[in-house]
């Protein structure tokens, strides 16, 4: 399996952020998470992004796919608050699915956005017994309502997860099936 190749169309944005194209095929994220993707994604690369790989199809202000590979006990699931004004959210090894969801909820509502869980159920993920959740996120910044879905599993005290969110009206339905395929293809190496 190839490791994620990040060449091609690298676009440098303001503030040393870059987008790298992620092509179809088998990809690994971090050391232990592998996924298969159909169709290209853009991988945002910038300093201080936090522990997840951030992918997008439509552009970051529109849709986001977050891929977490092997988050360790005590590690934050996002970039630490710069001003120290926002609460930071960290993974703990003993967390149950509802607590992991609450952690992501905390992460996504740090800016005053509103999160509503619509479903949480057991689901295979990464070849293991994981969980899946669905949510609606109302962004404080611009009042846009996003649909979201996530999968997670804890393996050897490390968290593996995929989160996707996009505006409810057009973009979510456009990409939801692809994202579900990616989640189904995920393999966690034990």
């Amino acid at each position: 399996m190839k490791t994620l190749t990040l060449a091609l169309s690298v676009v440098v944005l303001a503030g040393c952020a870059a987008m790298a194209k992620v092509d179809s095929g088998d990809r690994t994220v971090g050391d232990r998470l592998a996924v298969n993707i159909e169709g290209a994604w853009n991988h945002l690369q910038a300093p201080g992004l936090g522990p997840a790989q951030t992918w997008t199809r439509e552009g970051l202000t529109v849709d986001q796919l977050l891929l977490y590979s092997g988050i360790k006990n005590g590690e934050l699931v996002h970039a630490p608050s710069r001003s120290g004004r926002e609460k930071d959210f960290a993974f703990r090894a003993g967390m149950l699915p509802d607590e992991i969801v609450a952690m992501y909820e905390g992460m996504l509502t740090r800016d005053g956005s509103s999160f509503k869980l619509t479903r949480l159920e057991p689901s295979p993920f990464g070849g293991l017994k994981g969980f899946r959740f669905d949510f609606v996120l109302t962004r404080k910044l611009d009042n846009v309502v996003l649909s979201g879905m996530g999968w997670g599993v804890v393996s050897k005290e490390e968290l593996f997860a995929i989160l996707y969110m996009a505006p409810r009206l057009v973009f979510f339905s456009r990409h939801a099936a692809q994202v579900e395929k990616i989640a189904l293809s995920a393999k966690v190496r034990e």
Binding site: L117, T118, R119, L120, E121, P122, D134
Partner: peptide
Amino acid sequence: APDVAMIRS
């Protein structure tokens, strides 16, 4: 409740 399936498991 949204997590009923989880609780049933």
